[in-house]
């Protein structure tokens, strides 16, 4: 079973992109922000695989450099939100403290009343623009959503026989949380998280696209797409390649999630 999973094209693709983004300096002679006016607006060629933008910067280099923010930033933010969401959701569900649970439900209900991206954009704007604000907003909103989900699962679980018997034996709250509940909900949380990954990278790109995220000249996929928006009819490659990579990453994670959750 494990052998098949590793050969999965989605995983291979994502790992490839990850490697290229970290080690891009090894693969490319160009700097991601080096300006070279003489090479501006060149179409894709052997010299510049993905072409150049109006400053003569190599799109191939920028795309994979930008992957660091788009992929790893999202991954990190996602991971933090998962941990926080698990923690809060678990606690809210397990501890019958009425007040904590009540507030949590109300808070999550409020966030739930918005489409994900609207909530994130609003929070990003509220925290001040920039990369950190964007990922922070993403983490916060997602933590709330995961927390809500976890809480539901935990509440369903805690009435089950094996939990009740564990309590009867005298097991403490944290023991129950870690030994019994967590292993049971982890699989579904993981699947949700993988799906969320594509949502994260898309949302971050969307926010950078609007101008609220990354600042120039740092590349991030959404920002590069925005850079090339006026050149759609002429130098189409400026927006095309970052967008292509973004799409392929999303497709890969979608396929991956489907495999894990038929």
């Amino acid at each position: 079973m494990k052998k098949n999973r590793l050969k999965n094209p989605s995983i291979i693709f994502l790992i490839l992109v990850g490697i290229l983004s970290i080690a891009i300096n090894l693969f490319s002679p160009y700097d991601s922000i080096q300006i070279n006016y003489n090479a501006s607006l060149q179409p894709p060629s052997l010299k510049h695989f993905f072409g150049t933008d109006s400053f003569g910067r190599d799109i191939f280099t920028r795309t994979f450099y930008g992957a660091r923010i788009s992929l790893f930033g999202s991954a990190f933010s996602l991971f933090s939100s998962m941990v926080i969401g698990l923690a809060f959701g678990g606690m809210a569900g397990l501890f019958r403290g009425k007040l904590l649970d009540y507030f949590f439900s109300l808070f999550s209900l409020t966030v739930w009343s918005f489409p994900f991206i609207v909530a994130v954009i609003a929070l990003t704007a509220a925290f001040g623009r920039g990369v950190f604000a964007t990922f922070f907003a993403l983490a916060v909103v997602n933590a709330v959503l995961i927390g809500r989900f976890v809480r539901g699962e935990v509440i369903a679980l805690r009435e089950r026989d094996f939990i009740i018997s564990a309590r009867a034996i005298g097991a403490g709250d944290s023991h129950i949380l870690f030994q019994h509940i967590l292993p049971n909900i982890l699989p579904s949380v993981l699947v949700t998280t993988i799906l969320s990954f594509s949502i994260f990278i898309t949302t971050e790109a969307g926010i950078s696209f609007l101008g609220l995220g990354v600042q120039p000249p740092t590349p991030s996929w959404g920002f590069m797409i925005r850079d090339g928006i006026h050149y759609i009819g002429t130098a189409w490659w400026i927006s095309f390649f970052p967008g292509l990579l973004l799409t392929l990453c999303v497709v890969s994670t979608s396929f991956l999630a489907e495999k894990l959750n038929p």
């Binding site: 109006s54 120039p216 006026h230």
Partner: peptide, 13 residues
């Protein structure tokens, strides 16, 4: 906006 952002990048360089 198009020109102003790009000019900032150029001046930065």
């Amino acid at each position: 906006g198009g020109d102003t952002e790009k000019i900032a990048v150029a001046v930065q360089e």
